[in-house]
Every structure is written in C-alpha cells, then in structure tokens.
Design a protein around this nucleic acid. Structure first.
Lengths: 197, 197
DNA sequence: AAGTACATGTAACAGGTTACATGATTCA
DNA sequence: TGAATCATGTAACCTGTTACATGTACTT
C-alpha cells in the first residue's frame, strides 16, 4: 500500500499529469519507489474515485490530452495518517544474496563476473546520489523540509555504500575459489546453512 | 523469478516436504527470501511439472499426507544457469524512506515513535544474525561452501547495520524538529526534492 | 500527408498476500 | 469422540510487469 502514498507525495510537491509523474518516478521519488506509467494511471484513477485527488479544471475528458491532478484535503489527511502509522520493516528479499547461497550448492560458475558488474553499477548509483546531494543540498540551507529530504537521500547513499563494501568482500572470497564446480554433497556444511536459533 | 530457485536451493540442501520448506522459509533461507506456504505449494507443483523436482517414492497422492521432494538433475542445471546469469540489481523500494519524504510535505507527526520502533526491531535482527554467525561459523572451519554461506549472512549483517546507523541519524534529525505540522508550501525546498541530474 | 513525440489508456499475466477448506494423526 | 495439531491445498484479490492500442500536437 505504498504506491498511492508515493503519488500523493509527488502531487503535493507539485501538481502534475500522468506523464509528468512518470518522468518524476524515473528519478527523484523514483529512486526510492519506482513505478511504471501503467501503474501510475491505474492508481490516479483510484485516487480520484476515492476523493483524494481531482483533475485540475479546464481539461475535458479527452483521450490523448494532458490531464493534471492536484491533491484534495482528504488526500493529504490520508498521507499524514500513513506517515505516522505503524508498518513493520519488510524482510530482506534479495536475489543476489540468494544466488550466492545457491552457489554454495551448485558452484560459483559465472558468479565472479556478475559480482564485478554489480559493483560497477552500484558505484555509479552512489556517484549519482552524491552529485545530487552536492547540487540540491549545499551547506547553509537547512529548513526542516530540506533536512528530511536530505535524510532520505542519505538512505540511498548508505544502501549503495553497503553494497559496495559487501561486493568487495564477495569478490575477495569468490575470487579465491577455484571455480568450485557442482557442489559435492558429502563435503557440504551444516545441513540448514545459516540456520535457526 | 527467484522463488523457484530459492526452493531448488533449499531442496538441494535437504530434500523436504512442503511444510518443512515452509518452516525453513521462516528462518535460514527465509532471512533472504521469504515465502508463505501457499506460495511454496504452488511453486512445488510447477517445479514438479517442469521436471525439476520429483516427489520421493513411497507417498501416494493423498491430501493430508506428507509428501517430500528431491531435486532432479534438470533442476540443479537450471539453478546453476541462474546463478551464473545476469540480473540487474533492483531499484530501492522502501516504505520507510518514502514516509520520511512524505513527512517533508505533510509533517512528521507520529514519525519519531515509528523510527524508534524500527530501531529496536533492527537491533534485534542484527543480534540474531550475529548469534547465528557465532554458532554456525566458528573460526577454523572454512570450506568454500561455508565461506559462501557466511558471506550471505554478512549481507544481512551489513544491511541491518546500515539501518541502525540511518535510523540513528534520522532520530537525531527528526527529534530536533518541533513536530512540524502540515507542510507549509511557501517554505518548501526545491520543487522536485532530491531531483534529477 | 506522413512521421515523430507526447499523452493516456487496455489487456493479459505473474508474483505475493490473505482467508478459507479439507484431510490425517495424535492424544485427552 | 472430540479437540488440537500436522499437512496440503483452493480461491480471491492486489501489486507489478509486459505488450499493445488509441488519440493529439507538432514538424517536415
């Protein structure tokens, strides 16, 4: 239940049409909650029906034509409720960690190159976030709003930094293995791997 | 497309029934790829039909009765292919970061308590991972399989550590704000927040 | 008049979540 | 025999993804 709230946030920052939102979900907000244009149009319809947003007047309901939305009081109310509510953090669900675990049973063939590729991708993403911080949050300006948005950006920076460190450790470990082919069942470690308490 | 591979990995580590798998997805593998029992049974059916796994002989197709599966050669082949393949890292999609960003426009009411709650949850999770490392990976044992599994665990430890640090920063920032009520549009920062290059 | 970019949608499907249903086994 | 537990499954729904469809505005 986060996409509607992501859209409400984006529209509060600036009333927009579906396509403008789509563009902003390719950067900005999209760095922390991505969405395709199909999702956005579907959700705009629902939000309008729920009375959270409305189409700005002056636009007939024509198909190929721009239609901009703004948030209604009920919408910002719902958003504020959501911000202050309680939501457990979601469990980790990462394919790369899973692949390393699978490599322990079927071998690391091809894994090293993939780890190097990910390292490079995360380096670029980190550089991007750091450039944004320098550009959008120069020292001196620090309204509460700015501080909160910089805090979010620091989340992104921290996550990318984590991945860089982990990938460096992974490259060292996997690089030192002689391409361990199909996992030898008799040599396997604890049956349940990183198991339970 | 990761759930089938998570199941193949779990079954290669130890042939199991659906319920046993469900239990192991509540810990162990589940720390990095969670799944409910409904997902698991659905996927077991598909994997069997695809010829990747088979039910261990000796079990009639009775409803309420235990049915254990093992991985066939085609299954470990598919898993090895998947490990060595190419998959881009997924973009960040985190509700808590999104909520902080929303707080910049609708106010931080209720946020502080939620941040504290998350801090406590992540502390516990980190302690759990550290206990597992101590228990399952004592110094001395270091087969390639063990090193890979410990590497995965270090991923979990690194992620939890990141969250702890970020939440501490967040508590300091948000704690210093006088509960900033509804966002004042005129005082808002850059229209697109942490924007684009 | 044709092509391209802009803009809004529909349809079909896969993966994940929640609620419920059914049968077998054990034990009081 | 009735309740609790183990075990497997069905159904409905929501979110996210991919492919495609339709219409407008601008340029050449």
């Amino acid at each position: 239940m986060s996409l509607p709230h992501a859209i409400l946030t984006a529209l509060l920052e600036k009333p927009s049409s579906g396509l403008e939102l789509t563009r902003r979900f390719d950067r900005s907000i999209g760095y922390f909650w991505s969405a395709t244009h199909q999702q956005i149009y579907r959700e705009l319809g629902r939000l309008e029906e729920a009375g959270y947003i409305r189409a700005l007047p002056g636009d007939g309901p024509v198909r190929g034509q721009r239609k901009a939305y703004e948030v209604l009081p009920a919408g910002s109310g719902e958003l504020a409720r959501w911000v202050g509510g309680s939501q457990d953090p979601k469990a980790i669900r990462d394919p790369l960690l899973l692949r390393v675990r699978a490599a322990a049973v079927v071998g690391t063939d091809g894994l090293l190159a993939e780890l190097r590729r990910h390292l490079e991708l995360h380096r670029r993403q980190l550089a991007l976030y750091e450039a944004i911080e320098e550009r959008d949050f120069p020292p001196g300006r620090d309204s509460d709003e700015d501080r909160l948005r910089r805090l979010v950006l620091h989340g992104g920076i921290g996550l990318e930094t984590f991945w860089l460190r982990w990938l460096e450790e992974a490259l060292e470990e996997v690089g030192g293995m002689a391409d361990l082919p199909g996992g030898d069942p008799d040599a396997a470690g604890p049956a349940d791997g990183a198991g339970a308490p």
